[in-house]
């Protein structure tokens, strides 16, 4: 009885040392360190290329985007995150065409599910790799993705 008692105490100390040995190993082998020193490594930190941080609308150097205003993304979004306001525009040849006025994106509602990107028939939107989105005012998360004065790219219908 008493022997068992001391035996368990001895075993407990023994298994404590087994664990400590492993901890000690990692303590002395600095090559095995896996942690990153965020935010000090901001300059070198690279997210995966498919990482979903926010919905963005790429523009080319002439301030043109590919969004036709078809609203497929708005319908595909499960949260009502996207709101597209369209307007009628008179083109050079006198024809009237539907164009986007503003592409409103509520970042605070977005679950980053990628369904809008998949739904877009003209590849107008994609996912951006940014991730530091916290702000003090919720209103700042309501974004208009088409830049001021931007136009539809030639040849996108």
């Amino acid at each position: 009885m008493l022997k068992d008692y001391f035996k368990t105490i001895f075993q407990a100390i023994q298994s404590l040392f087994t664990g400590m040995k492993l901890t000690g190993y990692y303590f002395t082998h600095l090559k095995e360190i896996q942690t990153e020193e965020y935010p000090d490594n901001r300059a070198t930190l690279k997210m995966a290329e498919r990482f979903r941080g926010e919905v963005i609308m790429p523009h080319n150097e002439d301030n043109e985007h590919r969004c036709t205003g078809c609203q497929a993304c708005e319908i595909a979004c499960p949260n009502g995150t996207i709101k597209i306001i369209t307007k009628q525009e008179v083109l050079a040849d006198g024809k009237k065409k539907k164009r986007i006025d503003s592409f409103i994106y509520h970042h605070d509602l977005c679950t980053l599910c990628n369904l809008c990107i998949v739904a877009c028939p003209s590849d107008a939107i994609k996912m951006g790799q940014t991730f530091e989105h916290s702000v003090y005012d919720k209103k700042l998360l309501k974004k208009i993705l088409n830049k001021p004065g931007s136009k539809l790219m030639e040849g996108v219908e």
């Binding site: 290329e49 979903r52 980053l112 990628n114």
Partner: peptide, 12 residues
């Protein structure tokens, strides 16, 4: 998982 799906936890 993140490299292929784009998200770590709620992949969809």
């Amino acid at each position: 998982i993140e490299e292929t799906c784009g998200a770590r936890l709620t992949q969809n």
